[in-house]
Nucleic acid binder design. Sequence first.
DNA 1: TCGGGTTGTAAACGGGCGTATACTTAGCCA
DNA 2: TGGCTAAGTATACGCCCGTTTACAACCCGA
Lengths: 183, 183
Amino acid sequence: MKSRDREATRQRLFHAARSLFAEYGYEHVTVRMIAAEADANVALVARYFGSKAELFAEVLAGEPSIRQVFGGDTEGLPRRLAEYAAQRMHAEPDSPILRSLERSAGHPEIQNVVRDRLRNVIIEPLARLLAESGEPAASMARARLVTSIFLGIGTLRRLVGPEQGTPADVDRLTAVFAAALKP
Amino acid sequence: MKSRDREATRQRLFHAARSLFAEYGYEHVTVRMIAAEADANVALVARYFGSKAELFAEVLAGEPSIRQVFGGDTEGLPRRLAEYAAQRMHAEPDSPILRSLERSAGHPEIQNVVRDRLRNVIIEPLARLLAESGEPAASMARARLVTSIFLGIGTLRRLVGPEQGTPADVDRLTAVFAAALKP
DNA sequence: TCGGGTTGTAAACGGGCGTATACTTAGCCA
DNA sequence: TGGCTAAGTATACGCCCGTTTACAACCCGA
């Protein structure tokens, strides 16, 4: 018998799920894994969150976005994006959001969740930012392209392993984002 | 009872698998789906290909690569890459290779297959090309970056849907690849 | 203190998966 | 033409999945 504290147990399950989803993606995480990691009973996942999919959605909703990167001057945006991406390239990200997105996108059950999250949190805020500041030309296409590059970097990192990013890489990445963002 | 032609049946299974893997990815295709699509018996998948994973590997091995894009002058490479990517962005690709890669990368059972394919067919040929022609500086990093962008475009397309690419998009994409390739 | 509601547990359910096995049937050749 | 071999079939196996259910243990207020 465990702590007998509903909220604490719920939290343990939530954090276990968050960590595991980030590491392995929706499909490869089982509710039994989550329960084991949280040192709780399997049935409690369904009881406290309704279903595995709802738990995933709740995890996703609780994640901070990369909106912070968007703040600041527009001229510096490419470099901030590059540094953020380079950091993700060779370090464990503290936020599992993008990894979750990348790793979980194949599952039809949560595809809508993932898609909406991607749109609402990354693409459209970025597009709005571009539309408001400076030249609004093709802001949506530019936002999509930037998002593509982000996703691709994560995917490649996951597939062929991390690479230590040299300053030259960050420079190159900056140039890439600048090219993607040029009106 | 069917045609009773071993090679024909094998071919039907192979093509059904190719089509389904491209559409749904490794994980979401079952051997029963393949068999139904090929109008063959489930057991024949194991008999003719050993296992689902081996069948997938065979499908992957049979795919043409994007090496063709690499041929030609190095100056025109960014635009060829951009056109290839833009075409993939809004059209059904006739080759399922990249989609398979994107969609199947999460499965540990075939992760090695996917990773090796990605390395041997895209990254390393491209890196070699870059190293041989012109400035060899950071050819590997450049090849990785280009591959990242490719993967990301495919992922985004799959997640939020295709977008018709305008000529301006191709121009922008060309600039992006040029920035990624600049020594 | 004791009973009722809350929390946690164990087991089972129904289903899908990849794969293996025992069997039936078709086609060819002596 | 009859039988043998290769091709195809039906079914079952074992496993894991998410979820449900029936039950046990605990805590707290009356």
